[in-house]
């Protein structure tokens, strides 16, 4: 993945120079270790600002809406699937977007790495699968494969599903015997244990809505929690209101979520909100044979009626 950045810059530079796109949306280096920040590049001189590494965990599909003119965007497998979802849902037109695909080998789990050290991490570098992490007291060399985010270890679409340019060689897709072990674990619990699990999960939620705002699916002009005339959900820290937000946010993603992990990446309280959406992903797959964002010609299963839809739930 380290080598693809030269290719990304080369493509971006060419696109801007030829006037094929007005801007390129990508990642730039952050001001702190293990951080990159979404950035927009308007001119050829600035393409060196672009970087791509294992810390680019946000989803850039979230930045392509409402742009004037044609934009190029750097897309991992999951980003490309969300771009497909955007096109299907009429958020962006295919010919308005130039996709620079980046085959991905997974993004790192920053919180897991931080937890290894008692103090703050002051330096982070990577070379292939080797991560070098330094805190003020010690230094560790880690194997990236052991520190991937949960969604990346379970990812089966590392290569972009749609692209105009490719910034690296396609990577081998993972084959998983069971793509939903996390959902199975919760399904095996009884009702009270499940409830307890989710109560503890969202216990420290501060309702900053970073999970929602980092999500490329959440583009409603006014979110249901922000409706004020009339108001739908209480705004305080009442646990039922907090859970209502999480439950409905997840349900709005049903059949649309690509498990890109941006929600968890953004959460300041380290809450694995994917526990909600993963169940919907599993159900979509089992009930409709559906994985979101793979086909530009098909609408998500809850958007369309099909005579073959499962209907055992209805009396």
């Amino acid at each position: 993945m380290n080598t693809c950045i030269n290719k990304i810059r080369e493509i971006a530079s060419k696109l801007l120079e030829n006037g094929e796109v007005e801007k390129v949306i990508g990642f730039a280096n952050g001001t702190i270790p293990m951080a990159t920040s979404p950035v927009v590049i308007n001119s050829k001189q600035d393409v060196d600002k672009l970087v791509f590494n294992s810390t680019c965990g946000l989803n850039l599909a979230n930045y392509v809406r409402n742009q004037k003119g044609k934009v190029a965007v750097i897309a991992k497998g999951c980003d490309s699937r969300n771009i497909v979802t955007h096109i299907v849902e009429n958020q962006v037109k295919r010919d308005q977007i130039h996709i620079i695909g980046v085959p991905c080998t997974g993004m790192i789990n920053k919180k897991k790495i931080e937890a290894l050290f008692g103090d703050d991490i002051i330096e982070f570098t990577e070379d292939g699968d080797t991560l070098n992490v330094k805190s003020s007291t010690r230094e560790e060399t880690l194997n990236k494969k052991e520190y991937l985010r949960d969604n990346c270890t379970l990812c089966m679409h590392r290569n972009p599903v749609v692209y105009d340019d490719l910034a690296g060689d396609l990577v081998q897709e993972q084959t998983l015997e069971n793509p939903y072990p996390d959902v199975d674990r919760i399904e095996a619990m009884d009702a009270d244990a499940k409830w307890q699990h989710f109560q503890e999960l969202t216990q420290n939620c501060i309702r900053c809505y970073a999970c929602r705002n980092a999500c490329p699916l959440c583009y409603c002009p006014t979110c249901f929690v922000d409706e004020s005339g009339p108001q739908w959900v209480g705004k305080g820290q009442n646990k039922t209101d907090v859970d209502t937000f999480h439950f409905l946010r997840a349900f709005h993603c049903a059949g649309r979520c690509t498990d890109c992990g941006a929600c968890v990446e953004a959460c300041p309280m380290d809450i694995n909100v994917r526990d909600f959406t993963r169940k919907l992903n599993k159900d979509s797959f089992e009930m409709f044979g559906w994985e979101a964002g793979l086909d530009i010609t098909k609408r998500p299963p809850l958007d369309v009626y099909s005579p073959g839809d499962p209907n055992a739930f209805i009396k």
């Binding site: 959902v183 919760i186 399904e187 009702a191 499940k194 409830w195 989710f198 859970d243 439950f247 997840a250 349900f251 049903a254 059949g255 909600f276 169940k279 919907l280 159900d283 979509s284 009930m287 809850l302 739930f313």
Partner: peptide
């Protein structure tokens, strides 16, 4: 799917 998610929770 909504019923399933409620049950899941």
């Amino acid at each position: 799917m909504m019923g399933n998610l409620l049950e899941h929770m």
